[in-house]
């Protein structure tokens, strides 16, 4: 197991390296950030000085090796725009995004799994049909439209919930979080729902399909022949088998949700990392882009590690490589 984790981490480093190369080459091809950084009245000397300051006068490979040297010293560069270390910039915004994405994924499990179980258990019932049709809407309606609708109903018409910002935060382990204060929670409700509708629908449909498949399996028939109650069959025999695909997809989905949250963050003015990365791409702020993508790679690797371990717990037939 340890060996397996080390393997995974080495793979992650390789992926991060390859990604850094691609970002360097790609941004170099798109153009220079100088024009957007310089004030309109800048002279030719200002311009040359800025290029030298940022190290953009050196050949690309040299810039890359300088960057690598920095990485080894724990320094991913300084933002061209904000003049702050890129890592700190992202880390200051990341908790907001993470907590929103995790809230959305949590909602998708809390609602999606039971709804899917019900729909799969009695597929003929009217309630199940409503769930399944509803999930099609959740799938196909665009997030920005749902988000605007939520604001219209719950903030504008009913005035129940705030529509923008993060609300009061409280520091936990040195990081400010919204979910620990009531005001923060209230601010989180609408964006989290907006972000999770797609996920709820997906988890619901996935669970439903899994339950229907499991219900026609021999082990369920045998469980019935053993005289077990429907509740026991559903919550133990079926659920544990159904959770295997659900965990896979939800794991992949956490990454997706963070990417999607750019849209949601914009609409709800949620001060997450999505806004910063969009601005940085616009300004060709290379240190921020590279640092962000590296963090994303690390995050994905960690998510996948966790998914694999959960897998292993759910299905005893799965052995991790090197075990």
């Amino acid at each position: 197991m340890t060996l397996w984790i080390i393997q995974r981490l080495l793979q992650a480093i390789l992926v991060a390296l390859a990604m850094a190369v691609i970002v360097f080459v790609g941004l170099h091809l798109i153009g220079s950030p100088i024009e957007t950084l310089l004030p309109a009245e800048a002279t030719h000397e200002d311009r040359l000085r800025l290029i030298a300051d940022l190290g953009l006068d050196r050949p690309l490979y040299e810039q890359f090796f300088l960057f690598l040297k920095g990485v080894l010293q724990g320094n991913l560069g300084i933002s061209y725009v904000y003049k702050e270390p890129a890592v700190e910039l992202i880390l200051s915004r990341l908790p907001a995004t993470l907590e929103l994405a995790l809230a959305a994924v949590l909602l998708s499990l809390v609602f999606g799994v039971p709804l899917g179980l019900m729909a799969g258990w009695k597929p003929e019932s009217a309630f199940s049909r409503v769930i399944m049709i509803g999930s099609i809407f959740g799938f196909s309606l665009p997030i920005f439209w749902i988000a605007i609708l939520l604001i219209m109903i719950f903030s504008v018409q009913l005035g129940w919930l705030p529509s923008s910002g993060r609300g009061a935060t409280q520091t936990l382990f040195g990081i400010p979080w919204s979910f620990v204060t009531l005001d923060g929670l209230r601010h989180m409700v609408l964006p989290a729902i907006g972000l999770s509708l797609f996920n709820i629908s997906m988890v619901t449909r996935l669970t439903e399909a899994g339950v229907r498949e499991a219900m026609s399996s021999e082990y369920v028939r045998f469980a019935k022949a053993k005289g077990l109650s429907p509740r026991r069959i559903l919550s133990v025999h079926v659920l544990k088998n159904v959770m295997i695909p659900v965990v896979t997809v939800v794991g992949l989905d956490i990454g997706q949700t963070i990417a999607f949250s750019v849209v949601t963050e914009t609409i709800f003015a949620w001060p997450g990392v999505g806004k910063i990365i969009i601005d940085s791409i616009g300004a060709l702020d290379r240190p921020v882009i590279v640092a962000y993508l590296m963090l994303v790679v690390i995050m994905f690797v960690i998510i996948n590690l966790v998914v694999d371990v959960i897998y292993r717990l759910l299905d005893p037939r799965i052995r991790l490589q090197g075990e």
């Binding site: 082990y219 045998f222 544990k240």
Partner: peptide, 17 residues
């Protein structure tokens, strides 16, 4: 009344002890 089925590979739930 108990019942035993044909295919022992699929009658036991694979994820339960």
């Amino acid at each position: 009344i108990a019942m035993i089925f044909q295919d022992p590979m699929s009658t036991l739930n694979p994820v339960l002890r």
